[in-house]
Design a protein around this nucleic acid. Sequence first.
DNA 1: GCAAAAATCACCCAAAAGAATGAAAGCCGA
DNA 2: TCGGCTTTCATTCTTTTGGGTGATTTTTGC
Lengths: 154, 154
Amino acid sequence: MTQKLSKIQFLFLYGLALGSLLSLMAWSNYRFMVVDHATELYLLLIAGVFVSVGIWVGLRWSAPTIIEKTVHVPVPMSAISPEPNEQVMARLGISPRELAVLVELSKGQSNDEIAGQLFVSTNTVKTHLANLYAKLDVKRRTQAIEKARALGLV
Amino acid sequence: MTQKLSKIQFLFLYGLALGSLLSLMAWSNYRFMVVDHATELYLLLIAGVFVSVGIWVGLRWSAPTIIEKTVHVPVPMSAISPEPNEQVMARLGISPRELAVLVELSKGQSNDEIAGQLFVSTNTVKTHLANLYAKLDVKRRTQAIEKARALGLV
DNA sequence: GCAAAAATCACCCAAAAGAATGAAAGCCGA
DNA sequence: TCGGCTTTCATTCTTTTGGGTGATTTTTGC
C-alpha cells in the first residue's frame, strides 16, 4: 500500500471517487440507452460496496467483543510477579495502546499483522514499538518480549 | 456507541453521505428520467440500510477478542512435570546444537550475539534458525520463542 | 476551553533477519 | 566403508525491523 495520502486526503478522494465513478456509470447508461441486466449488476455492486464499507466501519470503530476467559496456571512460587499489571504500566509509563501492541508482539506477530489486528498503519505500530523499546529499555522486539514476560505484562 | 462523533468520524460519514447521495441521484435519474426527490431520499435510506447490514455483519462475524485472565496458582517446582526436554527434542528432530541456538534466541539475542556465544559464524546461526523454524513450524523468531516456551524447551 | 498526553501517520535510511541454494568436513552405526 | 545426520559456512536476494524526525489528530484532565 502506498502511504502517501493523508487521512483527510483519502476521505476527500473517497467521496469524490465514489460519487463521480458511479455518476459516470449512470451517465454512460443514459447516453447509450443501454437497457439490459447491467443495471442489476450495478445495484449488486453498489450494495456490495456499501456492505463492505459497513463492515470496515464496524470493525474499525467499535469496541471489540470481549470474551473473558479465566485460566488457572500452575507456576512455581518463585515466579509470581509481585507487582500488578497496572502498577508496572504506570511505573514505566506504558500507555494502553502500547500495551496492546506489546501483547500482539509477544504472540509472535509481525508489524504488519499487528497493524491489521489493531486497525492502524504499520508506521503507527513502529512508533509504538520504538516508544516501547525506550520504556522497556531494550533494543529488539525479542528482548521486549522477554522483558514483558519478566514484568508480568503479558 | 453513543459517543460524540470525532472529527475524523464526521468527515468519514460526510464522504460516505456525499458519495452515496451523488451516486444515487445519478442512478435515480437514469432509472426514472425524472427528478424525484422522494425517490432519492428513499434510495439514500436503502444505502443506509446496506451500510448498517455491513456493520452488523462485521460485528457479528468478527472473531471476538479473548482476554485471558490468568490466575497464577502457586505450586512447588516439584509439582510441575512437563514432558522432558529430550523427549520433545526427539519428537521434533531438534539437534543439540539447534537447541543451544534456540536457548540463546529466547534470551532475546541477535543472530550476531548468538554466533558470538556459540563461537560460530552468523551464517551458521541463520542456518540453524532456518532449520528450527521448519521443525517448529513457525515463520519468525518471535514465533519460535513462543513455541519453544509452549513446548517447555526453554 | 485549553494544555498535555496519547495516538496516529509519513518518509528516509540503515541494519537485521530470513529464504534458497550449494557445499564441505566430521561422526556414527550398519 | 558407505550412507545418513549434524555441523559448519558462503553467497545472493528479499523482507522485515529499527532509528530518527516531524507532523497532525484525538483524547483527556483540569
